[in-house]
């Protein structure tokens, strides 16, 4: 395989210098494959890869591995999310091999929200390894073709390695160094937490660029269009690590209730335009949470269509 690490579509798009556009899809709270396939159709052709979330907010859902495979069968490229909350290193390595065997080529390495947020707060939290170590593990399996214990792997999983970054969590001064650590661990691409505080993100990116991090790794800016002021309020209060400036909530509240969704989309589109020009930003990760059917319109209006074929 040429000089590509995984050969995933996302990797090829980024490597070719295109402005990447990724989407997100949460598996169902059940085994409703038909509904999932319906959601896929909104994303197909409109994004380069789709994050398949792994029991997000610690609520049990269909496994991200299974949903990723269903996605491949429908002709989309998944970005398989894996949290370290629910698996020890044995399960992690085994799932990575399984994922690769099923055709998965992108992985996003996460620690996961603490289980107290979810619907099984009584659960044991595993955390045998953390997200940083997961990145290093996927890299080792790919590049050295070895397991964590240094045993050889016969056919090694060649993953394009993703990691998350939240510039809005504290302590802010350390966040750019933590990003650097993730890149050193082996992250090929980064998807940031949803960005609402643009001033802070501009400052963060400047720091990242000053450190040359954008040259070592593709940084995708996270965008979530708000459906209404209530959603903005809720996220600001209850989702850990969210930084939603009062001005955004005010802007949404400033329009009629029935127009708030449009206002939310407008803000997201303004963000995408700025990210296209922002130094160090290689693409956008569009998290239209339970709003997949809006992605075609958002992608169209963001002028990111058609998606490159590489």
């Amino acid at each position: 395989m040429s000089d590509l690490k995984s050969g995933s579509n996302l990797e090829k798009v980024l490597k070719a210098g295109h402005f990447a556009f990724t989407g997100e899809c949460g598996p169902p709270k059940g085994a409703d494959v038909e509904h999932l396939k319906e959601k896929f159709q909104y994303l197909k052709g409109n994004v380069d890869a789709v994050n398949v979330t792994d029991n997000q907010t610690a609520v049990v859902r269909m496994s991200s591995l299974a949903a990723s495979k269903l996605m491949i069968d429908e002709g989309l490229e998944p970005n398989f999310q894996m949290v370290t909350r629910d698996r020890n290193r044995l399960a992690i390595m085994s799932d990575i091999l399984g994922a690769y065997a099923l055709g998965i080529r992108n992985m996003l390495c996460l620690s996961g929200d603490h289980q107290t947020f979810g619907n099984n707060p009584q659960a044991k939290n595993v955390h045998d390894i953390d997200s940083m170590q997961l990145i290093a593990l996927v890299k080792k399996m790919r590049d050295e073709e070895k397991f964590m214990n240094d045993e050889d792997i016969d056919v090694a999983p060649k993953m394009f390695i993703g990691a998350a970054c939240n510039p809005f969590a504290d302590p802010y001064e350390y966040r750019v160094y933590r990003l650097a650590n993730k890149i050193e661990a082996g992250a090929d691409f980064i998807q940031t937490q949803c960005i609402f505080n643009m001033d802070k993100f501009r400052d963060f990116m400047k720091k990242a660029v000053d450190m040359g991090l954008h040259k070592k790794c593709y940084i995708l800016a996270g965008v979530t269009p708000m459906k209404n002021a209530g959603m903005a309020n809720f996220m600001s209060k209850f989702v850990p690590g969210m930084d939603i400036p009062a001005s955004i909530i005010k802007r949404l509240k400033g329009v009629d209730k029935k127009n708030q969704a449009e206002e939310g989309i407008k803000f997201a589109l303004e963000q995408v335009e700025e990210f296209k020009e922002m130094k160090g930003v290689a693409g956008v990760h569009m998290m239209a949470i339970e709003w997949e059917h809006m992605v075609p319109e958002i992608a169209e209006r963001a002028k990111v269509l058609p998606r490159p074929v590489v």
Binding site: S111, H114, H127, D130, D170, R178
Partner: peptide, 29 residues
């Protein structure tokens, strides 16, 4: 650390407080 992270702090750390609740210090902070 609520997640026993060796490489923290996670993205939920806010104002020196852990994401799990306001009474828990984020030790990584």
């Amino acid at each position: 650390c609520a997640k026993s992270l060796m490489n923290g702090p996670c993205g939920g750390s806010s104002d020196g407080v852990c994401e799990i609740n306001k009474d828990t210090v984020c030790i990584w902070d």
